[in-house]
């Protein structure tokens, strides 16, 4: 991976470069409102946000299936608007829904991808064998895809995307709709891919653990805008070591003001619904609980936990990520 702190990094184009990218659909719906980011070679970059935040539209623009209405984007230096075929040649995508030929065998699906991405037949045969083995589909690969389970189909789609050895791999909500066991299996496959290759991976997700577990950096997307972009650790560090959640019977805003006036909560504390969330930067959380108890406000419950990206999202947008 080209380090962002490398003094020569400005001499090499980022693998993905997005500048002021914008999409307004006919009818006036602004799905993406001018976003900027760069992704370096070998980096795993996550777009984290709820459904409707603009993540899939962004992937659609980068894979040239959605035409941007403003800004620019480049993959490996190729402009997606003016050099779309070259941009597609360096990338592969795993879609949110199943996008396969169910009437064909898994092998045939992989072979079609290889041919369309310019892999010669002999090389394709070798790569398909490797990929099938790595995604654990050896027993199934010559069966029609219509007979696969959801998890098997998704593994086939990941394998298919790898057959052409793309420089950029897009994973659009790769685990959505899968049961937990298969989801974790797939996360392992992606993690292994990350560790074994120099491939640049961009994934969208609304699962916090996926972003934390897989991504080098995360862009939090809300209503078509990037509201925060950093490493998961740095984003979490903005909320201190622990989170204190105080559920109030009523008047949470007044309670928040009271906590602030007594120096218990800082500017990064916030309230949503009946809950006041206080990032706790210094000292232990048990201290926080006792200090809050001493104030004598009518609290319904007090709890402490480690901060999550959901808290970061909540603080930035006032909404929760998880459905």
């Amino acid at each position: 991976m080209v380090s962002r702190s490398d003094p020569l990094s400005h001499l090499v184009e980022p693998m993905i470069e997005v500048r002021g990218l914008r999409k307004t659909y006919p009818g006036g719906v602004e799905a993406v409102k001018g976003i900027d980011f760069e992704v370096d070679t070998g980096e795993v970059f996550g777009l984290l946000g709820p459904n409707g935040a603009g993540k899939s539209t962004t992937i659609g623009m980068l894979t040239t299936t959605i035409a941007p209405t403003g800004g620019s984007a480049r993959l490996a230096g190729f402009d997606v608007a003016t050099e779309p075929i070259a941009a597609r040649a360096v990338s592969s995508v795993v879609f949110q829904d199943a996008v396969v030929d169910r009437g064909l065998t898994g092998r045939r699906n992989l072979d079609i991808h290889a041919r369309l991405w310019g892999v010669d037949p002999a090389t394709a045969k070798v790569r398909i064998a490797e990929v099938v083995d790595s995604v654990g589909l050896t027993e199934l690969i010559d069966r029609p895809v219509g007979s696969y389970s959801g998890g098997q189909r998704r593994r086939l789609e990941i394998g298919r995307a790898l057959v052409s050895r793309p420089r950029v791999l897009f994973l659009d909500e790769p685990t959505v709709g899968l049961d937990p066991r298969i989801r974790y299996e797939l996360l392992d496959v992606i993690k292994e891919l990350r560790e074994r290759s120099e491939m640049t991976i961009m994934l969208t997700t609304h699962y916090l653990d996926e972003a934390e577990r897989l991504c080098d950096r995360v862009a939090i997307v809300h209503a078509g805008r990037i509201v925060a972009l950093d490493t998961p650790e740095a984003l979490l560090a903005t909320l201190g070591r622990e989170i204190v959640e105080v559920r109030m019977h009523d008047h949470p805003e007044a309670a928040l003001a009271s906590f602030r006036s007594k120096g218990i909560a800082g500017d990064d504390a916030f309230s949503v619904g009946s809950t006041v969330t206080i990032p706790w930067h210094d000292g232990s959380a048990s201290q926080a609980v006792s200090v809050i108890g001493e104030i004598g406000l009518p609290t319904a419950a007090i709890s402490t936990r480690r901060p999550t990206l959901d808290d970061v999202y909540l603080r930035l947008t006032g909404d929760r990520l998880a459905a």
Binding site: T65, A86, R88, V99, D101, H113, L116, W117, R160
Partner: peptide
């Protein structure tokens, strides 16, 4: 329900 989007992502006219 087929592979159209995959084909659209292919580097071909």
């Amino acid at each position: 329900s087929g592979a159209r989007r995959e084909l659209l992502a292919a580097p071909i006219p």
